[in-house]
C-alpha cells in the first residue's frame, strides 16, 4: 500500500504544497485506505438493505406486491404504524422541547453543567434494557414512585402504569431526553457567545437575544436533533416489550418485523415491514428537514453573521 512518490517533487522547494496534491503525486494510492471501512458499510449495511428490498418483493406466496398488500390490509400490521407514531412523535416533541431551554440555560461552562451532563450520560450508556428493568420495579404498585405519591397524599391508591403505553412513554423520556439534551448542548455551546453579547450592548434583552440570535442559528441543530430523536423513538423495541402491552396498545412496528422474521420465519414479510419502517422514518425526517429549509432559508445558519 506504500505510494511511490517522485522524489524530485518533494525536494523541489518552490512547490512544497505538492505533497498534498494527490493528482500531482502521480500514483497516489492513499485514497485506497478508505476501502476497508467502506467495505464494512457497503457489505453489511447497503447490501443487506438492497437484499431485503428485493426479498420483500419475493413473498412466500402471491404476486410481487403480496407482502405490501398483506401489510396494508391487516390491521395487526398496518396498525403498528399508527401505534408507533402515536408513541414516538409526541414524546420526541416533549424531549426536544425540554432539551432546548435546559441546554440553553446551561450554555455557559459551569460545575452544574458538568454535573448534569455527567448524570445524564449514565442512562444513555446503560441503554433501554436496563432502564426498562429499573422502571419495572420503580413504577410497580409497591414501587418507590407510588409510595412517594401515596405518602405525599397526591393519590389514595397506587396508580398502575406498567404494561400500558404510559410506562413505555416514561422509558422513552428516560433514555430520549438525555440524548436530546446532549445533542442540543453541543449545538448551543457551538454558537459564539460574543454574538449575544454584541446584541446585548445594542440593548437586546435576554429573551430577544434568544429569539433573534440563538434560535435562528440553532434551527439546523434543532431539526437534526428532532430527526435523530424521532428515528430512535420510532424504533423503540425492548421497552415496548418489557414495559408495555406488546399484544395490543404498544405493539410497535419493530416488534411486528421481529415476529415475522423470528417467529414465523417469513423473512420476506419481515423485510417488507423493515422497508416500510424505514420509509415512514424517512418521511418524517424529510418533513422536519424540509420544514426547517422552508422556514429559514439563507445565511442564518452560518455562525459568522
Amino acid at each position: 500500500m506504500s505510494s511511490t512518490f517522485p522524489p524530485a517533487a518533494a525536494v523541489a522547494p518552490p512547490r512544497p504544497k505538492i505533497a498534498h496534491d494527490a493528482r500531482a503525486a502521480g500514483r497516489d494510492l492513499r485514497p485506497l485506505l478508505v476501502l476497508p471501512g467502506l467495505a464494512v458499510v457497503l457489505g453489511l449495511f447497503c447490501y443487506p438493505f438492497i437484499y431485503g428490498l428485493i426479498l420483500s418483493f419475493e413473498p412466500l406466496e402471491g404476486g410481487p406486491f403480496a407482502n405490501y398488500i398483506a401489510f396494508f390490509t391487516n390491521s395487526r400490521l398496518y396498525g403498528t404504524i399508527g401505534t408507533t407514531l402515536w408513541l414516538s412523535l409526541p414524546i420526541t416533541i416533549v424531549n426536544v422541547g425540554l432539551a432546548l431551554p435546559v441546554a440553553y440555560a446551561l450554555r455557559k461552562p459551569s460545575s452544574s453543567q458538568r454535573i448534569i451532563t455527567t448524570i445524564l450520560v449514565v442512562p444513555i450508556t446503560l441503554g433501554t434494557v436496563l432502564a426498562a428493568e429499573g422502571l419495572l420495579s420503580y413504577l410497580s404498585p409497591n414501587g418507590w414512585m407510588n409510595r412517594a405519591l401515596l405518602d405525599i397524599g397526591l393519590i389514595s391508591e397506587p396508580i398502575r402504569l406498567l404494561h400500558k403505553p404510559a410506562a413505555v412513554i416514561i422509558s422513552l423520556v428516560i433514555t430520549g431526553f438525555p440524548f436530546a439534551f446532549l445533542m442540543m448542548l453541543s449545538y448551543v455551546t457551538g454558537i459564539d457567545p460574543t454574538l449575544a453579547r454584541a446584541a446585548a450592548t445594542l440593548g437586546a434583552p435576554p429573551h430577544r437575544q434568544f429569539m433573534r440570535i440563538y434560535l435562528p442559528l440553532l434551527a439546523p441543530g434543532i431539526a437534526i436533533t428532532f430527526a435523530l430523536c424521532f428515528v430512535q423513538a420510532f424504533a423503540v423495541f425492548p421497552s415496548a416489550v418489557m414495559l408495555g402491552a406488546p399484544a395490543g396498545p404498544t405493539r410497535v412496528i419493530s416488534l411486528a418485523a421481529y415476529e415475522a422474521a423470528f417467529e414465523q420465519y417469513d423473512y420476506s414479510l419481515a423485510s417488507a415491514i423493515a422497508i416500510i419502517m424505514g420509509i415512514v422514518q424517512l418521511a418524517v425526517v424529510g418533513a422536519v428537514l424540509g420544514l426547517r429549509n422552508f422556514a429559514y432559508r439563507g445565511p442564518a445558519a452560518s455562525g459568522k453573521g
Binding site: V41, G52, A235, A257, Y267, A270, S271
Partner: peptide, 21 residues
C-alpha cells in the same frame, strides 16, 4: 453519506435485513 447512514438509521431497521443475510 455512506459513513453517516448507519449512524442515522436505527439498528432495528437495518438489523432485520442484516440478520437475514
Amino acid at each position: 453519506l455512506l459513513f453517516l447512514l448507519p449512524l442515522l438509521v436505527p439498528p432495528v431497521t437495518y438489523g432485520i435485513p442484516l440478520a437475514t443475510v
